[in-house]
């Protein structure tokens, strides 16, 4: 097994992928704690399971479709009333590229 199951650089990268920012303290604490979980998971990693089919779900369900018929639905306002920012009946977000004007 590797000496370090996960490095601070990897934790920083994973945090960014998950849209989280870590302080220096958090980075060292989370690196150690995630390392402990991954060290424990080494037992699974070490298993020889080439012939075993993965099982992603307890039920063998296929796509579930309802009949394509009109049904009562919630109004857009039911959702928009609870949103942090709304304009013209839509969710409002900050500028997507670059800085705000």
């Amino acid at each position: 097994m590797m000496s370090e199951p996960i490095t601070p650089e990897e934790v920083t990268h994973v945090a960014y992928l998950a849209r989280l920012r870590l302080t220096e303290d958090e980075l060292s604490r989370f690196t150690e704690q995630l390392g402990a979980v991954l060290t424990h998971a080494a037992d699974v990693e070490a298993l020889e399971l080439d012939d075993v089919e993965p099982m992603s779900h307890p039920l063998p369900v296929e796509n579930t479709m309802r009949e394509d018929a009109p049904q009562p639905m919630l109004k857009p306002s039911d959702f928009l009333n609870e949103a942090p920012a709304v304009e013209d009946g839509r969710f409002l977000v900050p500028k997507i590229l670059g800085e705000q004007p």
Binding site: R19, L20, R21, F79, F91, V93, P94, K95, Q100
Partner: peptide, 22 residues
């Protein structure tokens, strides 16, 4: 931070997402 709950503002969408989740 878009459809419900907390939003912590940022200079762009990505920053807002990060600030909110952090």
């Amino acid at each position: 931070g878009v459809r419900y709950g907390l939003r912590v503002d940022g200079n762009n969408l990505n920053e807002m997402n990060i600030n909110t989740r952090t």
